[in-house]
Design a protein around this nucleic acid. Sequence first.
DNA 1: AACGTATAGATGTCTAGACATGTACTTCTA
DNA 2: TAGAAGTACATGTCTAGACATCTATACGTT
Lengths: 242, 242
Amino acid sequence: MIDRKSPVPMYYQIEQYIEQLIESRNLKSGDQIPSEREFTDQFHVSRMTVRQAVMNLVHSGVLVRIKGKGTFVSNQNKIEKSLLGLNGFSEDMISRGMKPGSFMMSFARIRAAAKVADRLALDEHDDVFEIKRTRFADDEPMAIETSYIPAKMVPDLTEDQVSPSLYQYIERQCGLPFDHAVQSIEASVVTAEEAKILAIPKGSPILLIERCSYLKNGRPIELTKSLFRADRYKFMVKLPRG
Amino acid sequence: MIDRKSPVPMYYQIEQYIEQLIESRNLKSGDQIPSEREFTDQFHVSRMTVRQAVMNLVHSGVLVRIKGKGTFVSNQNKIEKSLLGLNGFSEDMISRGMKPGSFMMSFARIRAAAKVADRLALDEHDDVFEIKRTRFADDEPMAIETSYIPAKMVPDLTEDQVSPSLYQYIERQCGLPFDHAVQSIEASVVTAEEAKILAIPKGSPILLIERCSYLKNGRPIELTKSLFRADRYKFMVKLPRG
DNA sequence: AACGTATAGATGTCTAGACATGTACTTCTA
DNA sequence: TAGAAGTACATGTCTAGACATCTATACGTT
């Protein structure tokens, strides 16, 4: 179970062992894991080494410790998790218990406008894919979304690949791992045209969300501007301690 | 510097000492902090105790360690940090390069309304402090803020303590460490009364932000509802990888 | 000048204990 | 029967070391 001769530190092997127990559903949310003493006996390592493994998992939110009681698998549910992380529209709607839908209004390869080129750190003459979609939740229009993606990063992008999940295509097919996104949220009121698409009265308040996603290497990979109906959509986010 | 008789653990005292060095700009971004050995000599504690303090700050992103070289203050710049973390109005405005101001409209100890009691996990008959403030940025009204704090958690709260920094009072004076906050952001339009306070036209769009802060022990400690002028304020957030 | 070795000093991993504190339960006592 | 005391066991804090590994530098040797 634990290889003392391995160059992989023992505390890390124990970490992986615990995570694997959770992954394989041998331990479920809220379950108590073996005590430090039990791990000490099981793996023949000192208590401090067990603690190092367990504390790492506590810091990353996988486990929760309660003094005098024990250590438990975090029941940080999916909705909490989705508040913390980077998700596309579909994942967002699913975590809210709604059925996501999408209608592509246009898909084109165009020269990047100055503002877009600036945000995506491109030269003026570089191309981007521009994807305009109306987004639905439970078959009602929820948002208007316009995405820009540098053509040189994802040269073979087609309309078909966008539909299932743009994020998964970029991450898995292209092997470009996401790192984080910076999002800005403003309030505004709809124009007549937007009101028509979203099926809401003229002058209704809307949430204007702009998101720029970055890869692990620091390069921006996607800029998305979204207009959400304010009567149906509330943006939620969980902020860790400052 | 370090009080061995204090019930506050030594590793935590060391944590606060290091954070204070950074706060007071004695240590700047990228600076190397004293080595574990030096702290051991300075505070007469064992190396493992120093490590516990330092590793906590590494896990929370304040410090970065490089094997064989040393431990350094994270150069995650302020604006990045403020996007990721939990900040009060004043910190938020300062990180935007504006001068924060505040006018207290009311400060009272009242019975919690049902909605507030629910969010703060209180009984119906529990008291809360209600703090209503108009917030200014560069001497112009920017937001209307109403905060609720359970009276039993902070029984001795007075108007004077709120003014400099409510967060610091709770965290340092009361010894109640924050863990995270959950924030929801909606768009709406102002009422006549609100428009007057914020000095904007009737029917202007506003950002309605509700924040509930939680302590390390999981208990909610603060509920704040804010109305921000949409023409001046944009909410920004950094989302780590999903 | 280029390369390899030695060394100092930093963090990384690990041990085998100690006592403190909180929780749950049992047992004793008034 | 209610409350106090005890006890088992959990995590929390802390020690004084050990050896490993990595970085940077100094110093020889070729």
